[in-house]
């Protein structure tokens, strides 16, 4: 949690929030039980995942291309995987616990190597 936790006599009256956009400080990625893993080799850049993601956690570059997943905010809901239209799917869910200590590239190879 990046936010500073204020004491009761420091909080703004009535729970009002004066700094807009501060939901960025709320790292919902910590909720994740499962995580999506992306395979750029089969991805057709349809951007369905980007449209459907409820947490704006699909990373996009300046050319409008999908470049991966923002795991700081991704809650692991699995909607992107559900929406992915490629066969086989270019996004798959794995248990968060099984991802510990592995890079994104290692995970991609592990998850998608059995296919193709």
């Amino acid at each position: 949690m990046a936010e500073k936790l204020l004491n009761w006599d420091e909080v703004l009256i009535g729970g009002a929030i004066k700094d807009p956009g501060n939901s960025k400080q709320y790292e919902t990625g910590s909720w994740r039980v499962e995580r999506p893993v992306w395979n750029q080799d089969t991805c057709i850049q349809c951007m369905f995942c980007w449209v459907y993601c409820p947490d704006s956690s699909i990373k996009v570059d300046e050319n409008g291309k999908m470049t991966g997943i923002d795991y700081t905010f991704c809650k692991g809901c699995g909607i992107c995987v559900e929406q992915c239209p490629t066969k086989p799917k270019s996004l798959k869910m794995i248990l968060e616990a099984e991802s510990k200590g592995k890079t994104e590239e290692e995970l991609r190879k592990e998850v998608f190597s059995s296919e193709k």
Partner: peptide, 8 residues
């Protein structure tokens, strides 16, 4: 956060 707001 809730507790602090209620005491405020």
């Amino acid at each position: 956060w809730y507790f602090e707001h209620k005491i405020s």
